[in-house]
């Protein structure tokens, strides 16, 4: 039911972990839905120098987390803010319809992390 790209990211997720002393932390989701994502970012020169994720969730949740880290690494904050959940799903060649809402939160986690960084500044 998942695309090859989703399965590829699920099997070999990129940028798993947590950045110590991160500049921004974003956490979204809840246990009721079965998906919790935590994204940590390092910001240098107004751009995302490093990004890592930790996710509790299904295949789609893990793949979207992995994909969003790949999409934003090195991007400016302005560019990163433009990435939406839809962008992430598209980059994975789509998600099953039932997963579009429940497990497609990676961009939300990214935006929360950027917001957290801006608030701290």
């Amino acid at each position: 039911m998942y695309s090859e790209k989703v399965m590829e990211h699920f099997k070999n997720p990129r940028n798993v972990g947590e950045i110590e002393n991160a500049d921004g932390v974003g956490e979204v989701g809840n246990a009721a839905c079965g998906d919790i994502m935590k994204l940590t970012i390092k910001v240098e020169n107004n751009a995302i120098a490093d990004v890592k994720f930790k996710t509790f969730g299904c295949g789609a949740a893990i793949a979207t987390s992995s994909m969003v880290t790949e999409l934003v690494k090195g991007k400016s904050l302005d560019e990163a803010e433009k990435i939406s959940n839809a962008t992430v799903a598209e980059a994975l060649d789509g998600l099953p319809p039932v997963k579009m809402h429940c497990s497609n939160l990676a961009a939300d986690a990214l935006h929360a992390a950027i917001e957290n960084y801006k608030k701290k500044k």
């Binding site: 956490e27 989701g29 998906d35």
Partner: peptide, 13 residues
Amino acid sequence: SLNPVERTAAVCH
């Protein structure tokens, strides 16, 4: 234990 930062409201539609 869960880090309580910036845990946005339920996004479970």
